[in-house]
Design a binder for these strands. Structure first.
Lengths: 250, 250
DNA sequence: TATCATTGCGTCATACCGACACAATAATAA
DNA sequence: TTATTATTGTGTCGGTATGACGCAATGATA
């Protein structure tokens, strides 16, 4: 979608769309990747459509490759949004009307259901790239996000809610942090996602008990105080925890 | 879909379908509602399509109303299945070919994505009813379920997996048990869903600690041994637990 | 050299959980 | 009528996880 396809109906399947809530972590803040629409300047989630030979997962990967330059992104579908009126009044249409592009307008006038994905990416490695309908693609801290296009605010909210829930039985951080990181950094990530502060000492104890961290000999220097140890994820245990979960529960 | 609509393309949206995994509890067994295809005798999940004015949730409710006679069913979407090849070789088509119904065959030859729902219903109140393509609609215990049509086995497996996960932070039982029930019955439900046995005494302690049960004065008589107390769900707390979750987690 | 926020490591009381003991009960068999 | 037996109600006990907090060590800055 870097170039405007004049042939949506030939390229993509009717009614099907997807939207991605891309999370990144930077400056002790949880950020989301957003697009700004060309004419209306509305902000929107990166999204796209599905080709005849794609699963939704593949389509989402393709879209995120275009928007961030990254491949092999952590991606998870969390909900499907199917309100019959959700895709009405798409600001994209008003952009297109200026160009009198009939076929294209028709495509965007149809009803779309949207599969919501959330993605976790390394902030420093992503290269935000606008699509054809937007003039800007950039990271926004969660508390800077105003009203979004269509039902995208609702999608973002649900994604965050899901992420918070998953935190309880899934490891997180491998996709959001650099390879080596300190315990305070990891804690800050958790605190940002949860939106509340945690006890430093209890966090460390619990985190270490999961067995998904390797403590390194190095320390992170340069900070203005006592230099903390560096950690890395134990990928084997991390992957295992992703599948089995962190707690047995029942 | 009790009658065969000759006008799918006018009634429903292209590419969109849904499948429901309907769970019921009876005879200390977890059962699933299945349909048997008329000609091929393949077993399948109850499913359907989406009308232009429906959300997926509304469409699923409509389908389940037709298959069970029940309204206001506990319903939850858990995953969308979008393999491009998933809806190939639909046995329904071979049924239709006998009738040389061209338009109808075309409809079923298109690629469908399917939103998976799972539903929890009161076994005793449901009235299984086949649709136009099936000659039988009946409950099957989980271990009696053989290979299902298309990717329906995969859908069923994922539904069960989701249900087991949800058990950890959501109350369950209100939709599956009669109004009054005993602690052993509730435990049996948990054991059946989880596929493993639990300690009677620890189960009771944990269950009561949730605060979602009212202990009644009555006992259940007629059993061959000591008569157990009856319980009912405390609906207020139950609903609250559904939203907030059973455990704080982080 | 003193200051001070930050970090590493530890303590303590409490809650919770798994495993298990024992008496009470209700239908059935003797 | 009485003994048997499987089941249920209630409680205990030790181990473990959790929340709240103490204190000394560190490393840049003043």
């Amino acid at each position: 979608m870097n170039q405007k396809p004049n042939v949506y109906q030939d390229l993509f399947l009717n009614h099907l769309s997807l939207d991605c809530v891309v999370f990144g972590f930077h400056d002790s803040q949880l950020k989301v990747l957003l697009l700004r629409m060309k004419r209306t300047k509305d902000w929107a989630l990166p999204g796209g459509f599905v080709k005849p030979d794609e699963t939704f997962e593949v389509a989402a990967s393709r879209v995120l490759k275009e928007r961030t330059g990254l491949g092999d992104i952590f991606l998870k579908q969390f909900k499907i949004f199917s309100d019959p009126l959700r895709s009405q009044n798409n600001p994209i249409v008003s952009d297109l009307e200026e160009e009198k592009d009939k076929g294209c307008i028709e495509w965007f006038h149809q009803r779309f259901i949207s599969v919501g994905f959330y993605a976790l990416v390394d902030f420093s490695k992503a290269e935000p790239t606008p699509d054809f309908f937007s003039d800007q693609c950039s990271w926004k801290a969660l508390d800077e996000v105003d009203a979004l296009m269509l039902d995208h605010t609702q999608i973002l909210t649900k994604a965050l809610e899901t992420l918070r829930l998953q935190l309880n039985y899934q490891p997180i951080g491998y996709n959001l942090l650099p390879d080596k990181f300190t315990m305070p950094e990891l804690q800050k990530l958790y605190e940002t996602i949860l939106g509340k502060e945690l006890d430093r000492r209890n966090f460390q104890r619990r985190m270490l008990s999961y067995g998904i961290l390797n403590k390194l000999e190095e320390r992170k220097t340069g900070g203005a105080h006592k230099s903390p140890f560096l950690y890395e994820f134990n990928l084997g245990n991390y992957q295992k925890a992703l599948q089995v979960g962190l707690y047995g529960g029942w």
